[in-house]
Write a protein that binds this DNA or RNA. Structure first.
Lengths: 200, 200
DNA sequence: TCATCAACTTGACACCATGTCAATTGACAT
DNA sequence: ATGTCAATTGACATGGTGTCAAGTTGATGA
């Protein structure tokens, strides 16, 4: 069988991911990857046509392993809008640290590479669904602050919980994950939930 | 006098800035700059030792022309915390579009280049002062929502009005400047101002 | 008027990155 | 044993940063 081929491919993906996590932000070269796997640089090109393709494949590989989808099972327990909001920040806030290196690498090439930008946006789509679900629930329950239209609220919600904001608050300002989660929940609740509604 | 030298240096800075604004996000090379000015690539190195130095010099050049400092004169009119908050978002929200290309270019190399990161952080320091002043005023007036410590509020404030958030809301989601300003004010007021206090 | 100095030129080079190509080795299956 | 396929070595094109050397041009001062 082509178990050798498959194996090397996986080893490349694994090494790429590890390098991304290690060297947050710093770009990694094909040579770096090859060296880490212990094969020649050209061998990497036998499995991935280009650097871009490798990065996208790595993204999909990581997605498969730590699927965000599965984590959303926590959402089934949430019945109210506020519970959805809390679950959303809990899941996402614990998820980001695990994929931060990868996300950073994708974001870095996003501006110069059409394909990675598409991959990134695709990944963000599932987050948008969650945000929409949450805002919809709040609206349905009549506790969405009336200054917000549904569309505006969703987009602001997405922006608040963006990886860049997580990065600034945790990496730059040193907030712990639990601090990040608690304060982000606080901000979202104060922002979107009608003040006549009791909080928490 | 060395008016020729000074002149060329200024022309390089001007061209660099223009290129940054034109090709948002895409990195620009020393050749691009030289071509735009109409001189040889090596001549650029006569004025700036490295690409990094050119970018930092461009940042300072732009800062000189459209100084954020001067715009803060609008702050003198603000007496209350809420007025400060509004003035802050007004000034900053109208400022970002003018320096977005430059900011984008600096942010792109920030992760791989220590010097540009330092320049960027230096630029952000003046923003932090404004945020602090605003939060302090709210606290002093007793209308800062009591869930927030002063430090946390400042850092969250800074994060909310970050250029990345502006980029996502305007460039990606298509918000106009006035929409961005209005909705950011709304979010900040709801988040930080005690709900017993009448808004607006 | 002539010499000088600084800005700028051309052209070459070192180094590193991506990406391509050709020829070769080594293992494994039929 | 022969073919197939992964992987290797080595060369090459392209394009980026940064350095160096030698030559050109033009303004300025003696």
């Amino acid at each position: 069988m082509s178990s050798r081929k498959t194996d090397t491919r996986t080893r490349i993906l694994e090494a790429t991911w590890q390098l991304m996590e290690q060297r947050l932000g710093k770009s990694i070269s094909m040579s770096d990857v090859a060296k880490a796997v212990g094969i020649s640089r050209q061998a990497v090109y036998l499995h991935f046509d280009s650097r871009t393709e490798l990065m996208i494949a790595t993204s999909n590989y990581v997605d498969e392993i730590k699927g965000l989808d599965e984590r959303l099972s926590q959402f089934k327990a949430a019945s109210t809008g506020i519970e959805l909001l809390e679950a959303c920040v809990d899941v996402w806030g614990n998820y980001i640290p695990e994929i931060y290196g990868l996300a950073k690498a994708l974001l870095a090439t996003r501006d110069t590479d059409e394909a990675t930008a598409a991959t990134w946006n695709n990944n963000m789509r599932c987050l948008r669904d969650i945000c929409k679900e949450t805002i919809d629930a709040l609206e349905h329950e009549g506790i969405l602050a009336n200054e917000w239209s549904q569309q505006d609220a969703i987009e602001m919600f997405m922006t608040i919980i963006s990886i860049q904001n997580w990065e600034q608050l945790t990496i730059e300002y040193g907030w712990s994950t639990s601090e990040y989660i608690a304060r982000t929940k606080l901000l979202l609740k104060r922002t979107f939930i009608n003040s006549s509604t009791p909080k928490q």
